[in-house]
Amino acid sequence: MSDTQSYHLIGVMGWPVMHSRSPLMHNYWFRQTGLQGKYVFLPLEPARLEAALRALPALNFAGANLTIPHKLQAMEIVDEIDPVARKIGAISCVVVRDDGSLWGTNNDWLGFLGNLKQSVPGWRGDAGPATVIGAGGGSRAICHALLSEGAPAVRLVNRTRAHADRLAADIGGPIEVVGWEERHGALEGAATVVNTTSLGMVGQPPLDLRLDALGPDAVVADIIYTPLETPLVEAARARGNAAVGGLGMLIHQGPPAWKLWFGLKPEVTDELRSMMEESILGDR
Rank of each mutant, 00 (worst) to 15 (best):
I251S: 04
M249G: 06
L53C: 05
G282C: 03
T33Y: 03
K265D: 14
R54F: 07
S119K: 14
L56Q: 02
P216I: 07
G138K: 02
A55F: 02
I91Y: 06
A221R: 01
R97Q: 15
H26Y: 06
V193K: 03
V233K: 03
A236L: 11
Q36G: 11
P266A: 09
G200V: 07
A191I: 06
A164H: 09
H8K: 11
D212Y: 03
S101Y: 01
P266Q: 11
N107L: 12
A62Q: 14
M1T: 13
G254L: 07
G89I: 01
S148I: 07
R86A: 15
S92C: 13
W15F: 14
G200P: 06
L113A: 14
L207A: 12
V40D: 06
G173D: 10
G189H: 09
D217R: 14
P216A: 08
P206T: 08
S198W: 11
T131N: 12
L146V: 08
P255C: 10
G263E: 09
C93H: 13
V202R: 15
Q253F: 03
R21Q: 13
G128Q: 08
P152H: 06
E188N: 08
S101D: 02
L250K: 00
S20T: 14
N27Q: 07
S22L: 06
V193M: 02
Y7Q: 02
K71E: 10
M25A: 12
L199N: 05
R183M: 05
G282P: 03
F112D: 04
P174V: 12
R97C: 12
P57I: 10
A243G: 09
S274V: 11
I171M: 05
L272S: 09
P16K: 05
L167G: 01
Y28L: 02
P129Y: 02
G179C: 13
G138P: 02
D208Q: 15
V84G: 01
C143P: 00
G14W: 04
S148L: 06
H184A: 15
A145P: 02
E176C: 09
A218P: 04
P227H: 07
A74K: 02
A164W: 07
A141N: 00
S22T: 15
E149C: 13
H184I: 02
F61M: 10
F112P: 04
T105H: 05
V120K: 08
L24C: 07
G172Q: 07
G173W: 08
L49I: 05
A55R: 00
Y28G: 01
P83C: 05
L53K: 01
G248N: 06
E278F: 00
Y225P: 09
N106V: 08
P231S: 09
E188C: 08
D108Q: 03
A238N: 03
R124T: 11
V96S: 01
E149T: 12
M13T: 05
D126F: 04
E277D: 08
H184V: 04
Q253K: 05
G137W: 00
D222F: 10
P43K: 04
V95I: 14
L281Q: 15
L35I: 14
I88C: 01
T197M: 05
T160P: 11
G89L: 00
E181D: 15
F262T: 12
T197V: 11
P23S: 10
S139F: 00
S22R: 07
L72P: 00
H184E: 15
V94N: 00
S2D: 12
S2Y: 00
R21C: 12
K265H: 13
P57V: 08
A218I: 02
V193W: 04
K38G: 01
S119C: 10
R97N: 14
